[in-house]
Structure formats: C-alpha cells, structure tokens
C-alpha cells in the first residue's frame, strides 16, 4: 500500500479524505486504482495530472515505480511558459 495525497478540492470526490491508501507499484496502477475507487476523480484524471514521487514530478510516466514508503502527491497538471 502507498499513501497518496490529494489537493484539497479533490476531497469532494473522496469522502473528504486528502490521504488515500492505494495498492500500486507504479503510476499507471495508481491512476487506475484511483479511478476505480473514486469514479468522481475521472474527469480530473482524464484532463491530466502530475504525480510527485519523493519530490520528483512526473507527467504520464506510467511505469515510474512507487515504493511502499514513497511520498506520493497528486498535483494539477503542471505547465510552464
């Protein structure tokens, strides 16, 4: 199980919880399980999110491994100028 942290406005889709326990070994599994357990997150996930694993930010890198003790944050899709 990894603990994934959500940003505040997603809690309306997760029964108010900002920290979720998810069984996932990489980003792909994480996103799939999140959508499975919390269908309300689907539009946000489809629009694109970034995932921070131990302080490194990834976009759509499905096979980026996640360790059970990794710090994982779901973030709005980051874009630059």
């Amino acid at each position: 199980m990894v603990q994934v942290m959500l940003w505040g406005s997603l809690t309306s889709f997760t029964e108010g919880r900002t920290a979720l326990e998810i069984e996932a070994a990489n980003i792909k599994e994480l996103l799939e399980r999140l959508e499975e357990h919390y269908p309300g997150l689907k539009p946000t996930l489809e629009k694109g999110v970034s995932v921070s694993i131990d302080g490194m930010i990834y976009n759509d890198a499905w096979f980026q491994p996640i360790n059970p003790d990794s710090e994982v944050y779901l973030l709005p899709r980051l874009e630059g100028g």
Binding site: W7, G8, S9, L10, S12, P43, P76
Partner: peptide
C-alpha cells in the same frame, strides 16, 4: 463550478475552486 460540494446546477463564470495546503 468544479471543486465545490455539491456542484452547482446553475452555470456561472467560476470554472473551478482549488485548494492546497
């Protein structure tokens, strides 16, 4: 508006509310 519970049923110019911290 996305990001408020319950989601409004009336259209407005507020697309979303986001919260961090």
């Amino acid at each position: 508006t996305v990001g408020v519970t319950p989601q409004p049923t009336q259209a407005s110019n507020i697309a979303k509310r986001s919260e961090f911290g």
